[in-house]
Amino acid sequence: MNIFRLAGDMTHLASVLVLLLKIHTIKSCAGISLKTQELYALVFATRYLDLFTDYISLYNTLMKLIFLVSSFSIVWYIRHHKIVRRSYDKDQDTFRHYFLVLPCFLLALVINEKFTVKEIMWTFSLYLEAVAILPQLVLLQRTRNIDNLTGQYVFLLGAYRSLYILNWIYRYFTEPHYVHWITWISGLVQTLLYADFFYYYFQSWKNNVKLELPA
């Protein structure tokens, strides 16, 4: 474990907590894409298949449980909670996210580190996570006024993977044979997708104006 990865995990945890805070306290999911939340629940479900088979550390197991429980409960809140579901804007959240699942799965069948069920599911979860933010970014461009919590949520979600890139660089130089091209490339693609969001987020923070993404 290195400082970049710990910071990355904490940033990821913070993004989930910000979202849960928003949904649980103000009972609203305005501006949040249910599709992205569903994709993230699928990412964790397919990545943490080894939750009960390979014990790595208490920290690892605990964080996996937190991410699994929080992502599924966020999906439940938006879909079934009698108050929260009313603020879900399904007419705007129209990204065909199922079109992301199949290509990621096919790609995982073709490009993976080992052709086993667990490894293919793990690789699938990496590719899917790289594109999971797309419905949310599209929704942000449609909803004119982005509230602070939503902006912070997306920012933290993008920042965590950027910190992971620093972690991979650190591990590459400090651990022999630590080479995971698949992880690195999908992590880089994921971070690049946030590039323009980061730009507008930084501009709104610098000029102290409301965050707005150009349509």
């Binding site: 990865r5 990821h12 080894d50 580190e113 080992k114 490894e119 793990w122 972690n167 992880t183």
Partner: peptide, 10 residues
């Protein structure tokens, strides 16, 4: 040697 793919990251 079976390179046990050790996914120790989240």
């Amino acid at each position: 040697l079976e390179t046990f793919l050790y996914h120790d990251e989240l």
